[in-house]
């Protein structure tokens, strides 16, 4: 057995809220479980009650409206995002990030919102969603709030969510026409791995704005200041982006990589990503 805890499967948010707020000790929200159950098994986390949100219909939404605005419910597994043709078409960067996570089997369980709420500096969904300017909706018995995703992360494995608060969905505004997006991740091997470093970005030719975010190089994923591409040459923009990343990153050494390697490889990812995004006829 993984541990001793109670399991509840509410079908509404208020019911889930009551369970989370109950007085039977620490509670945890269970979505895909691919981080939570591993932590419980390793005794890094010892909740008394798991509140499974996968049967709450409101959290199973994966909608793309006619303009391309996207809503990703907290119970939507990554493979659903990956397999949705409309998303593959409009936001390839989001799909690339999702596809880089773990294995096919785990992506049938793991959710995008769960990946964010686990608040790992290496969360692969974070950079692209930051670059896309995603908002996160959170619900609690005291009300609902919307926050920019960047405010979710407060430290390594720490979010701003309250104990009785449930992240319910991600909202991404309709992309500017022709928006390009991309995600690059450095791993130790081609097979499933956590990111040594990652970079994601969007570029809207219509506005000339380049947005970049990076992962695994600071206690939280980092959204960089937008870059006005204007009439600058690709080399100049690349250089600007690389300098911005170098100024912002605070990498550590761990079992996956040394700070030196992260410092060396992240600018490479950023440079390549920018080159892809700015390329004439680059993937939308």
């Amino acid at each position: 057995m993984l541990g001793r805890f109670d399991y509840q499967r509410p079908s509404t948010l208020p019911e889930a809220g009551r369970l989370l707020a109950g007085n039977d000790g620490p509670a945890a929200v269970l979505a895909g479980g691919t981080d939570l159950l591993v932590d419980i098994r390793g005794r890094r986390h010892d909740p008394r009650i798991l509140v499974d949100i996968k049967r709450i219909d409101a959290l199973r939404r994966l909608d793309v409206d006619s303009a391309g605005a996207l809503t990703i419910g907290a119970a939507v597994p990554l493979n659903e995002i990956i397999e949705r043709a409309a998303i593959r078409r409009t936001l390839p960067g989001l799909v690339q990030a999702a596809e880089s996570i773990a294995t096919y089997q785990l992506r049938n369980r793991a959710t995008a919102v769960g990946n964010l709420c686990n608040a790992s500096p290496a969360a692969d969904m974070a950079p692209i969603l930051l670059a896309l300017g995603a908002d996160l909706m959170a619900w609690s018995p005291h009300g609902e709030r919307t926050m920019p995703l960047s405010s979710l992360f407060v430290g390594v494995k720490k979010t701003c969510l309250a104990a009785d608060e449930i992240a319910t969905e991600l909202r991404i505004l309709a992309p500017e026409p022709g928006l390009r997006s991309g995600f690059l991740k450095q791993q130790r091997l081609r097979g499933h791995d956590l990111a040594v470093s990652s970079a994601a970005g969007t570029y809207a030719p219509s506005t000339g704005v380049l947005r970049l975010a990076v992962g695994s190089c600071a206690p939280t994923p980092l959204l960089l200041e937008p870059i006005e591409v204007g009439r600058s040459s690709k080399a100049v923009v690349e250089e600007k982006a690389v300098r911005a990343v170098q100024a912002a990153m605070r990498p550590i050494s761990d079992t996956r990589a040394s700070a030196d390697y992260r410092r060396a490889v992240l600018p490479v990812l950023v440079k390549r990503l920018v080159a892809d995004l700015l390329a004439e006829g680059g993937a939308p």
């Binding site: 159950l37 098994r41 798991l50 294995t103 785990l106 049938n108």
Partner: peptide, 29 residues
């Protein structure tokens, strides 16, 4: 491995491959 990394426990849950070590039995209800 017990942590979803090796795939030895792969089964189909509602026709989708999952690692059974990271699914609670009650979730399969």
């Amino acid at each position: 491995c017990g942590i979803g990394e090796c795939g030895a426990c792969t089964v189909l849950l509602d026709e989708k491959p999952v690692t059974a070590c990271l699914v609670l039995a009650v979730e399969a209800d």
